[in-house]
Write a protein that binds this DNA or RNA. Structure first.
Length: 884
DNA sequence: ACCTTTTCCTAT
DNA sequence: TCAGATAGGAAAAGGT
């Protein structure tokens, strides 16, 4: 009844679902008709999950440059996108989006211009907007609530704003109807909440903070919506400031831009999850581990291991111990470390075979029956009459028992002196579990080869990945110390020490065989790098296979060495840092560049460092000609020195750990910028875990680096700021480059020192500074002293240096020619500027003067630069007028 | 100038 | 980083 009447308000009658939604299917009772074919049911279960997902964005009118603040700023529009994952036959619309607008002044304004169809609901006041919104939620009854960022925006803002208006939104959004008075919160409860920053919870629904999920999903330097949608959806979205959005909203002619902006975003958030199949994969893991959907995302790996392990333990009548914190703290410290060889650091032209043990630690546990349930403790404790320390607990083995075990040869001793019974005495719970996991994974992989339907492939893939994950973290569970729920050093140490011994034995076996004539040059925990001097790659592959056979035969099942790849050539830098050209099969023609640990795979440098390094290595690997590398490097340096480098590639971005996440006095760019922002806007504080971008600018010598840190946005608005080319070259690019090139006897510092300096610098404009994004306000920033020293080439192109934009000689001696040159430059730059603007508009799809300000915008900095150049010529023209 | 500590991120 | 583990390298700042 309620829903029916609501349909009209929702304006859904024109929706693609001809008959309108079948209301009965909306509240979770999806009983299949009995006559439905089983096959179809099965197929549907694979293809559809019957979940309703509700993505939300809200538009807030803000004050000046400030971020939205629920204490002052009202919500004027709530945008949503709903996805129903059901078969078409269900008769429920699968994709719907809409907006609830508070427009007391101008109903319908903006919508007419839009050309985009948005289901709109109108409200007279903000309070009414909240009520309508609650009704929309009740109507769709979503299982999952989505927001790109839900702490300060979307759901978080709606809830906080609700409190200001006296509405308890968490209650209103909840699926559980809490009757009676609202749950009262004591002061203590509140303290508790603040201290642990409890995440947003809506009873009965799952709330997902998409950017946080993305942070775990992929490694990127930025997790803004624009950046994620570019990398996942390969789609550019414009970014607009709150100030611009507020301005655009106020004019009926431009309001549609705001509507479209948020509608696209609420849909985009849904599409990102869809593209990654995040819901599907998470449900798959939940089924696999036997835990709840949200627990897959919110809980750690211990929880997963425990869930599976206890399932295995129960039928065997085992109960897990629950040591207290004191007991855990009392446990002995682990003694064994994984084996990491110090690599022979150099450039290898010979093929280098990389072999590694497949799931070494799980194999150790299976192969030697290492488990809580099979461990008898340390050799020295055995056969005493007193209980001894064991894990976080105690254990006692009587002399009689020991005698019996010894006499019948029923025990094994791990390299760290811990005794386990053999598997025919008792098969350990963990070994059994791991064996099943590995076997299942093998079966799943086999099934993947048979079944080729994409949706099934996806499911099987995530299933086998989950199994691999589980196998790998099981060791961690036994070795966890401070956070561990049931740690046991004896078991953990045995696994590490046996793994170490296995690796060492393999290394010895490889080096001892004179037939192969090879050397082990590096190894880390479960891998060995074998140099094959003076032979071809084909031979290397053949020798590799022989090694695999020999080592595998030398170990118990299921321990298996695998030929992972052959590098040729490669550079071993240090432990955990190496690069090479990789061949995975003997008949592979084109190698694949692969790097581990070095700057090309790290996110703590700026992109230009990684790119330059990668390019250099590729040139080096392909041509083995250092002069070509040198030519490339010097060209890069020139580009940076002349200010022509792409500023986006100069942006560093590091994770912000929260205002309380640092030691007092910590000197961290992200913290420094945050403190500066907080002075003017308390809501501008980055979220914990957010990556804060920054650049390094020029400044007087002697200043610590931290004083030269600016946000990229400042670089755009403050024309006095210039990129610190010397920092980028000498501190950022050269050291990583040198770590590779010094190994072949080349010092990039020398290249730089002997470089011809004909660098021209970007002109700095003094007083006319009206930042492009500061709306021409008279906020002239007196910036770094560097701008006063700026001397540039004469604009007339005579080659003289001048601080007036144009030199006296040109003005006095041939004014006609000078004027012509300048006019020509003006028109050239004007064309260039218009061209750049066109590209920007093309990408953002919006009209003139409403370009985006996203740091991910491909032309943002080019635009700024073009604008400045044009501005500079204006300045020169003015100067010229006065002097002629 | 050298050493230590803190921070950040990666390999296994 | 209300919780798998440790090893490891490098940059920056500050102390001696």
């Amino acid at each position: 009844m309620e829903r029916k009447s609501y349909l009209k308000t929702l304006n859904l009658s024109s929706d693609e679902s001809a008959g309108g939604p079948d209301v009965s299917t909306l509240d979770g009772s999806f009983g299949f008709k009995s006559d439905l074919a089983n096959l179809r049911t099965a197929k549907a279960c694979v293809e559809y999950n019957y979940l309703t997902i509700f993505s939300l964005e809200c538009h807030v009118l803000t004050r000046g440059e400030l971020c939205p603040n629920p204490d002052f700023d009202g919500i004027v529009a709530i945008f949503y996108a709903v996805q129903n994952n059901v078969p078409e036959e269900e008769g429920v619309p699968t994709h719907v989006s809409g907006v609830i607008i508070d427009d007391m002044f101008s109903a319908d304004a903006g919508l007419k211009h839009s050309g985009v169809e948005i289901n709109a609901i109108h409200a007279e006041t903000e309070k009414e907007l909240f009520e309508k919104f609650t009704e929309v939620i009740k109507y769709w009854d979503p299982d999952i609530l989505l927001g790109y960022e839900i702490e300060m925006n979307s759901w978080g803002y709606v809830i906080e704003r609700g409190y200001v208006l006296g509405i308890n939104m968490p209650n209103a959004l909840s699926r559980l109807r809490i009757s009676g008075p609202e749950s009262k919160k004591t002061d203590e409860d509140k303290d508790f909440e603040v201290e642990y920053e409890s995440e947003l919870k809506i009873p009965g629904r799952i709330v997902l903070d998409v950017w946080r999920l993305m942070r775990e999903e992929i490694a990127l330097t930025s997790y803004t919506f624009e950046s994620i949608s570019y990398h996942i959806l390969h789609r550019r979205y414009p970014k607009r400031s709150y100030r611009d959005l507020t301005k655009l909203w106020h004019s009926p002619r431009s309001r549609w831009i705001v509507l479209e902006y948020f509608q696209l975003r609420s849909q985009g958030t849904l599409e990102i999850l869809d593209q990654l199949d995040l819901i599907g994969r998470t449900s798959e893991l939940a089924k696999l581990f036997g835990i709840q959907f949200f627990e897959v995302l919110s809980r750690g790996s211990q929880f997963r291991v425990e869930s599976m392990m206890l399932r295995m333990a129960k039928p065997r009548n085992f109960v897990s111990v629950s040591p207290s914190i004191q007991q855990r703290a009392h446990m002995r410290a682990p003694e064994y470390l994984p084996l990491i060889l110090e690599p022979e650091s150099r450039f290898y032209v010979d093929p280098v075979i990389v072999l590694d043990f497949q799931s070494l630690y799980p194999s150790m546990m299976i192969g030697y029956n290492y488990c809580f349930s099979t461990c008898l403790g340390r050799v020295e404790h055995l056969g005493g009459t007193e209980p001894f320390e064991f894990g976080a607990s105690q254990l006692m083995i009587t002399p009689e028992q020991v005698k019996k075990f010894l006499k019948r040869d029923l025990i094994t001793i791990s390299p760290c002196g811990v005794i386990f019974v053999k598997s025919h005495v008792r098969e350990g719970v963990l070994p059994r579990m791991l064996k099943e996991i590995l076997d299942t994974r093998f079966m799943v992989k086999k099934a993947m080869k048979i079944h080729t339907s994409p949706s099934l492939q996806r499911i099987l893939h995530s299933r086998q990945l989950g199994l691999k994950l589980m196998a790998n973290v099981t060791y961690g569970y036994t070795a966890a110390n401070f956070s561990g729920r049931m740690p046991c050093v004896e078991v953990g140490d045995s696994v590490v020490s046996k793994g170490r011994e296995t690796l060492q034995r393999a290394i010895a076996l490889v080096e001892a065989n004179p037939k192969w004539r090879v050397r082990v040059v590096y190894g880390d925990t479960d891998s060995i790098f074998v140099q094959v001097p003076g032979r071809t790659r084909e031979e290397a592959f053949r020798i590799g296979e022989e090694i695999v056979k020999a080592v595998t035969a030398d170990n118990p099942k299921p321990v298996k060495l695998k030929l992972e790849k052959v590098y040729q050539p490669c550079i071993l830098q240090t432990k955990k840092r190496y690069v090479g050209y990789m061949y995975e099969t003997p008949d592979q023609k084109e190698p694949v560049y692969e790097a581990k640990g070095i700057e090309t795979v790290r996110r703590d440098g700026c992109p230009i460092v990684g790119k330059t390094l990668e390019k250099c290595l590729k040139i080096l690997f392909e041509t083995k000609d250092v002069s070509i590398v040198k030519r490339y490097v010097l060209r890069q340096f020139t580009k940076i020195l002349s200010g022509k480098a792409n500023v986006q590639e100069l942006i560093f971005a590091k994770e912000f750990r929260g205002l309380n996440g640092y030691r007092p006095g910590a000197c961290v760019p992200a913290l420094e910028l945050t403190k500066k922002w907080k002075q003017t806007d308390s809501r501008k504080e980055p979220r914990k875990g957010e990556r804060v971008p920054y650049i390094v600018v020029n400044g007087p010598p002697g200043l610590p680096l931290i004083k030269l840190i600016r946000s990229p946005h400042e670089l755009i608005t403050d024309e006095g700021l210039k990129i610190n080319a010397f920092y980028y070259i000498q501190k950022a690019i050269i050291p990583p480059l040198n770590r590779c090139l010094l190994l072949i006897g080349v010092d990039v510092n020398d290249w730089f020192a002997n470089m011809p300096r004909t660098a021209t610098f970007l002109p700095a404009i003094g007083k006319e500074s009206t930042g492009m994004l500061t709306s021409g306000k008279a906020d002239v920033k007196k910036s770094t002293i560097s701008q006063y020293f700026a001397r540039t080439s004469c604009a007339a192109g005579c080659g003289n240096q001048t601080s007036d934009g144009i030199c006296d000689q040109c003005v006095r001696e041939h004014p006609q020619k000078t004027l012509l040159t300048i006019f020509n430059r003006v028109s050239t730059l004007e064309r260039k500027y218009c061209g750049v603007m066109k590209i920007c508009q093309l990408c953002c799809g919006s009209e003139r003067d409403t370009n985006c300000s996203s740091l991910d915008c491909p032309v943002l900095f080019v635009r700024t630069q073009a604008w400045r150049e044009r501005k500079h010529v204006d300045y020169v023209m003015n100067a010229l007028k006065n002097r002629m």
